[in-house]
Design a protein around this nucleic acid. Structure first.
Lengths: 144, 144
DNA sequence: CACAATTCAATTGTGCACAACTCATCTACG
DNA sequence: CGTAGATGAGTTGTGCACAATTGAATTGTG
């Protein structure tokens, strides 16, 4: 008779716990900016390049319109972004930063360092972890 | 002038993506059992030892009663667990497995292997990842 | 050109996740 | 003993996350 799988031996649970712990550390840091973690991710993408369609944002972040539509509506209510129908393809909605949205980038500069401080891993470990997670995510997504 | 942090360089985003990818692989596998991933985690804990109070389950999984109460209600509706007020401390609710809940363990045996197949990492990489995630989670939770 | 198939965003419904709160029970201290 | 503080579970409200569906716009094909 085989034993039931043990929770503490499961890498997936370690992944789930680590991800929750990370967003828990982000929470108070991002609260200063008035953002949640997924909202911060969307802003990161827009700070890199805008405008971006809802579809582009979804492809970048792995989120669908069911998640992004209400999230973007909240960012718009915060005055950080605007949404407008694309001229050349009326199916698309382009998301652009407002002045306040662009300006928020400055105050967000310190966020990654705050997280790095809390992580307690060496640069080597971080790099190794990043690489392994990348391989893992690719393999998992590939198996669907 | 410094650049905005890049999404693809952030370990936290890699963590977030990997965790979502893992639950996405779990989803169809667990659907055969009629469970979601968090429900599966609760069942794993109960298969190890029961009864467990709501508080114990929360401590084990890092979840609070706001998450567990409705989740346990759904497991009860599925006929997998029962909840009863503890005799020695009437504040507590003990969660116990039903016959069906215990029996489900057999059908769940294959789940971890299904995930391991999809992960595409060597045993060494898995072990390394598990260790690093453990360190990371501890450090993150410690910083709160 | 016509129209079938596809694409895109939004909506609906379900289920986590967590903060803030309520209420009952228990513990400890004066 | 009696009550102040604590603990445990549940509820409410907000915000993801995703499946399934809708409806509008575009593309591909005959």
């Amino acid at each position: 008779m085989s034993d039931a799988p043990r929770l503490r031996h499961q890498v997936c649970f370690a992944l789930y716990s680590a991800s929750k712990a990370a967003t828990a550390v982000y929470r108070p840091v991002l609260e200063d900016l008035g953002l949640t973690y997924p909202q911060y991710l969307v802003m990161l993408v827009l700070w890199e390049q805008e405008p971006r369609s809802v579809r582009d944002l979804g492809a970048e972040l792995g989120l669908d319109s069911g998640t992004l539509s209400p999230l973007l509506k909240r960012l718009e209510a915060l005055g950080l972004v605007e949404r407008r129908r694309s001229a050349e393809d009326e199916r698309r909605v382009d998301v652009v930063l407002t002045g306040a949205g662009t300006a928020l980038s400055d105050r967000a500069q310190a966020v990654p360092q705050r997280l790095a401080d809390a992580a307690g891993l060496s640069a080597d470990e971080i790099e190794q972890l990043h690489a392994t997670l990348g391989k893992l995510t690719a393999a998992l997504n590939n198996s669907l």
